[in-house]
Design a protein around this nucleic acid. Sequence first.
DNA 1: AATTATTTTAAAAAATTATAACATCTTGAA
DNA 2: TTCAAGATGTTATAATTTTTTAAAATAATT
Lengths: 227, 227
Amino acid sequence: MNTNVTILLAEDDVNLGKVLTLNLEAVGYTVHHAGNGETAYEIFCTSDIDICLIDVMMPLKDGFTLAREIRKLDKKTPIVFLTAKNMNEDVLEGLSIGDDYITKPFSMEVLQARLQALLRRTMPENTEQHQTIKIGNFSFEVDHQRLWINGEEKKLTTRETELLLMLVNKKNDLLERGYALKKIWGDDSYYNARSMDVYLTKLRKLFASDPNIQIINVHGLGFKLVM
Amino acid sequence: MNTNVTILLAEDDVNLGKVLTLNLEAVGYTVHHAGNGETAYEIFCTSDIDICLIDVMMPLKDGFTLAREIRKLDKKTPIVFLTAKNMNEDVLEGLSIGDDYITKPFSMEVLQARLQALLRRTMPENTEQHQTIKIGNFSFEVDHQRLWINGEEKKLTTRETELLLMLVNKKNDLLERGYALKKIWGDDSYYNARSMDVYLTKLRKLFASDPNIQIINVHGLGFKLVM
DNA sequence: AATTATTTTAAAAAATTATAACATCTTGAA
DNA sequence: TTCAAGATGTTATAATTTTTTAAAATAATT
């Protein structure tokens, strides 16, 4: 879903405008639909627009003019032209002002794919929250590969982190030995299984201070983190 | 003129490859032309590529596979697909991996316009505004090769800057050791690897004041800048 | 109970990485 | 050109991570 992405749609064809609006809204975009260049400009100036979808041929103000005015105000917001024309000059002019140029007829899938390709590159990267997982009194910072207990930091190795994460994701439930081995070690050979055993011992030692946290073996099947 | 812009062109059709190369060079691009996916990958790994132009149907390694492999190493360099096919699924797959999708036959003007539209967005030097990247409370001025923290300036050497930039471009994700070595040091020999280790130690010292910024080693694979 | 399979653990080995110290190269000023 | 400072590369050693080995412990099966 494309939550929090707002599209300015400038399209004078009433039918196409409605179809596009409904389709884009259906996949989670917020759409502001303008029937001509003038109102589109007004909307751009007064709203928080993430991307512009602009028909080239429009009454009152054509798409290229609108796009140039928008570019004067804002250099970054991506602009995509929609047009029935396929003449080279128009394509060239469109791409020199905007970021993409789609000729009618087009499928909704292709439109959406092009919008997403653009947004991937232009939307400010979500300052992703690193997940921290509570394990009893421990705090497991997955990305930082560390475990906190009473303000004390215990650094984890990559293998320890991977294995603990798999156990946590299946907490109180069986983590199959072969599954974990294939995911972490690549294959479930005998020696990798011994290696995994070694890491289970290491994890057990890390949590030894809290008797309510246990890594239990299910004979012949795998392991279970009980907490 | 597109000075200092290097294109990786992966195209198996000898004629088309030559025509494209000549035309792109004529307008100032530097072109590295590979006749198949394998050599294209080699070139990408060892050269400083600004944009990739990839034919979908190629021997040894098809364009989509090549693009996925490149994306694994590098999240930013724009990828444009060239293809004779116009089937929707291919377009959709292409746009989900890369940034643009151009179907043959196309005019050189349109290709160039699309390349420029992409480069406008992705080459920060072109927009004359120097790239500064936030790393926790640090401010990394790439072009000036320096790092600011609390109004204090820390000058970086070229190697430090190159390595930090690669880490930042893959933040919270694995930067493969061999890839970074080839890109920065030219080859992944034993001694270059030791040199890289030395620079990692230097970078770690720079960020030592902030425990939430870590350069984590992933044993046998590479490094991860967690922030 | 005896046998077999599986798991646990410690310890050793192998592989990889970290760091300091030193050497060499580059660059710009004198 | 020479020198000095800084950047980069090399080397040695230490530390860490992961794997392998071996032996003991536990669990299931006959």
